[in-house]
Design a protein around this nucleic acid. Structure first.
Length: 794
DNA sequence: ATACAGTCGATTTTT
DNA sequence: TCGACTGTAT
């Protein structure tokens, strides 16, 4: 592809870093300047461009590895990027910072914590920890009387922190005549105080406090400004305000002789200023899906205004998907107003048509997915080339059930995390109690785990004693005898204190020597064994506790693994990794399994075959999004992200009924389906089919008055546009099946249009939601919504 | 202090 | 449906 007249921007003609890149990609790799925005459509090779750009900087000696900071959205993406850069430049890649915003901030904060009243052993609170603390605060402030819940308070504080509002700043402009507002402010302030006392940061603090640090201590900021000369940010469309400000801080020229003009602003003495770091951001506003947690799409849409002199490069050629898939994606996303028109294209040809399917229930839908997977299998598609997406985690259940029954190997990405399990959190709390004794939450957590006979009363007494004597909660444990507790409690606390000390000697030797790499595993085992935690689990009757013991064994194995990978790693490093690294990097053993995940998790991934399930109103777009400004648009982007993950085959499926919270409800086809041109979708079973047979009247069809046969159902008669529509809808509404008065009892035999004959096992539910549990002679056990199922009594 | 039962309630996405 | 939480009995 290297035509001589392609105006190489550097005087090399056969450059391995540029080989196979199209023109905009080359430009993105080679452009040099203060700011570069790479607008990278889905599948346009942005990771390739980013890695080649980094390699290009290194190879030309424009930058040392240590001068490069590359930010990705997930740890997994960071790992992959590092790997790919390593492939290009080798060992050099080691010195670069390639990490998430959060990891980078932790690294900075650990180094600088002493500057502002924290220690480097600070704890990182995840949302569960925050929830626990918030629960306590809401209770203490009796805030429930004002309609504040722990969850709402937590969400609000998180949002404010993302906007870099701290408690005091917020208090100054809050409407304090509103009692609810006043209580909220008090909780916010109290929360901030508690975190500080606990030597802890929550997730949002990691970003916000780093920005604060940079603003309050310009000389600290300068260290990093001088260090990082090239900053690259992936997924820029999903950055929030705090992240944006962090980037701004880092790309400012080092102030050197800067003069503090107040308000955190630094005036520069021009001669002393070096140039700010060069900034490269990559993103696609059509793939912005995290506005709900504070991502601000304006960061990318207004980039050119924010960084004058920025160059913009557009990558529109798609190397991933077939044209049919891209057409579907383009058609959907073009319904979002307020966006720059951008059309993905490929030279790979039309490919397979999109396949649609409508099931009666989510089980029916799942069965379809399973059947299709098996048939793809027989045409030698590997399981690991297949992914199944859904909007909400709960939808995975039905799929799992069917997959297990069909013996399809699968794994669920995301979902309940290993580190979220109670026993794991307990074990980690033990570590934290040793490493960061100021963390009262951690100490309280382990206080009565295992059960030691310490209840709320004793806990309160300890806390009071600590407050009266100006001790930390942890240190109060060492004075159990003075608190005035019963002998049993005293003894138990003395023991706990001794165990913590013992572990402390292993993890943080008093001699000041560095603990050996094996210390984490050893300390962990001492804590779990000597505290009696493991014994309690082993003696338990609960079969689940057996699994918990195994999980803890696994955790110890993780610590060993950590020591192997990080010979210099400390407990603190271990705890950081655990707090920040979701276990999504268990990606390596992806071999031979179908991947199940939410649409959000799917971002940044790609698969040969994609099943996008549950394409229903109230699911995608999700019901809750309807009320939020920009909600439906974000849902459309989410749908778009899902579509564009597919390389060759895309399946869209939905169900006409869906059980939620144990209630069966009627589902309507998603509006997004109608946005895909009918010709692109080959409906194996369209919503119309199910309607006509199932007799359910689709409100979606009526409400939106389709101008044509939206579902691509092959018409029985030649289509006559309006006339055929009338007939179509008439046919649907004219034959509404309503079995409302059908009396069924256990033992009755019935016939189902699809499943054949069977016997009723049980009837549950009331009125219109009565459900028959039927054992079909050949189709197995099914649950049917009696009112609408295509059944008759025999 | 703890175990258990029963009610209640709330159900999106996640670094 | 399922899990968290509350109240009661031991």
């Amino acid at each position: 592809m290297a035509h001589p007249h392609d105006a190489p921007l550097v005087p090399t003609d056969r450059d391995p870093l540029l080989d196979g890149l199209n023109e905009p990609q080359r430009e993105a790799v080679l452009h040099r300047g203060p700011a570069l925005l790479i607008v990278a459509g889905a599948g346009s090779g942005k990771t390739r461009v980013l890695t080649h750009r980094i390699a290009s900087l290194l190879r030309s000696r424009e930058a040392w590895p240590s001068q490069i900071l590359a930010i990705t959205f997930t740890n997994k993406a960071a790992g992959e990027m590092r790997e790919r850069v390593e492939e290009l430049v080798g060992e050099q890649a080691k010195g670069m910072w390639i990490s998430t915003f959060h990891s980078a901030c932790v690294r900075i904060l650990r180094r600088e914590a002493e500057q502002f009243g924290f220690t480097k052993a600070f704890t990182i609170y995840d949302s569960g920890d925050v929830r626990a603390l918030m629960k306590r605060l809401v209770k203490e402030h009796e805030a429930d009387a004002y309609g504040l819940t722990p969850a709402s308070t937590q969400a609000r504080i998180s949002m404010l922190k993302n906007e870099l509002q701290d408690a005091d700043a917020y208090a100054r402009q809050a409407n304090m005549t509103d009692p609810a507002e006043r209580v909220f402010v008090e909780i916010f302030q109290d929360y901030t105080r508690r975190l500080r006392q606990a030597n802890a940061f929550d997730f949002d603090d990691l970003l916000a406090q780093t920005v604060y640090l940079f603003r309050a201590f310009p000389q600290v900021a300068d260290v990093y400004r001088r260090r990082f000369r090239h900053i690259l940010v992936d997924e820029y469309q999903d950055t929030n305000h705090a992240q944006y400000q962090l980037i701004r801080e880092l790309t400012k020229p080092a102030s050197g002789e800067g003069v503090d003009v107040g308000d955190g602003m630094i005036a520069l003495i021009p001669d002393a200023a070096e140039a700010g770091a060069s900034l490269t951001v990559v993103g696609d506003s059509d793939q912005s899906i995290y506005a709900f947690r504070g991502a601000d799409i304006r960061n990318i849409t207004e980039f050119e205004r924010d960084f004058p002199g920025a160059r913009v490069v557009l990558l529109e050629q798609n190397y991933r998907s077939s044209q049919n898939i891209l057409d579907a994606a383009n058609a959907v996303i073009s319904n979002n107003f307020d966006r720059k028109d951008k059309k993905l294209w490929t030279d790979q040809g039309a490919g397979h048509t999109v396949i649609g399917f409508t099931g009666y229930s989510q089980h029916d839908e799942a069965q379809f997915v399973a059947d299709e997977i098996e048939s793809l299998r027989s045409s030698s598609v590997g399981y690991d080339d297949i992914a199944v997406f859904y909007r909400t985690n709960s939808q995975s259940r039905a799929l799992e059930e069917i997959f297990i029954r069909s013996a399809i190997p699968y794994r669920i990405m995301g979902g309940t995390k290993f580190y979220d399990r109670a026993e794991i959190k307990d074990a980690l709390a033990y570590l934290v109690a040793v490493v960061n004794p100021a963390d009262e939450m951690a100490v309280r957590r382990i206080l009565n785990k295992p059960k030691r006979g310490i209840g709320a009363v004793t806990e309160t007494n300890i806390a009071r004693f600590a407050a009266d004597n100006d001790l930390t909660f942890r240190d109060a444990l060492a004075h159990a005898g003075e608190i005035g507790l019963g002998p049993k409690q005293q003894k138990v606390l003395d023991h706990l204190d001794a165990v913590l000390r013992e572990a402390q000697e292993i993890l943080l030797p008093a001699s000041g020597d560095d603990a050996p790499p094996s210390a984490v595993a050893e300390g962990m085992q001492v804590l779990l064994n000597r505290s009696g935690y493991l014994d309690a689990l082993r003696q338990s009757q609960d079969p689940q506790d057996e699994a918990r013991v195994e999980n803890l064994d696994e955790l110890v194995a993780v610590t060993r693994e950590f020591a192997r990978n990080n010979p210099d790693g400390t407990v603190i490093d271990f705890l950081t990794e655990v707090a920040l690294v979701a276990d999504s990097d268990n990606l390596d053993d992806a071999s031979g399994t179908v991947s199940l995940m939410t649409l959000h998790t799917a971002k940044g991934l790609e698969f040969d075959t994609v099943f996008l399930t549950g394409v229903e109103e109230d699911l995608i777009p999700h019901r809750i999004s309807a009320g939020e400004p920009g909600g439906p648009q974000e849902e459309r982007r989410l749908f778009y992200v899902g579509i564009t993950r597919a390389r060759q085959r895309l399946f869209l499926s939905l169900a006409m009924t869906r059980a939620q919270f144990g209630e069966v409800s009627v589902a309507m086809p998603s509006r997004f389906l109608q946005e895909i041109p009918a010709g692109l979708v080959d409906w194996r079973q369209s919503p119309g089919d199910v309607n006509s047979r199932g007799g359910m009247r689709s409100r979606a069809l009526n409400a939106t008055a389709p101008r044509e046969n939206r579902w691509g159902v092959k018409p029985l008669e030649p289509s006559r546009s309006k006339a055929s529509l009338a007939e179509f809808t008439n046919r649907v509404t004219g034959k509404v099946r309503d079995n409302g008065d059908l009396e069924l009892d256990p033992g009755d035999r019935i016939r189902h249009d699809d499943f054949g004959e069977g016997v009723v096992d049980a009837i549950t539910g009331q009125g219109a939601k009565r459900i028959a549990h039927v054992r079909f002679d050949s189709a197995g056990a099914k649950k049917l919504l009696i009112k609408v199922a295509p059944i008759e009594k025999l």
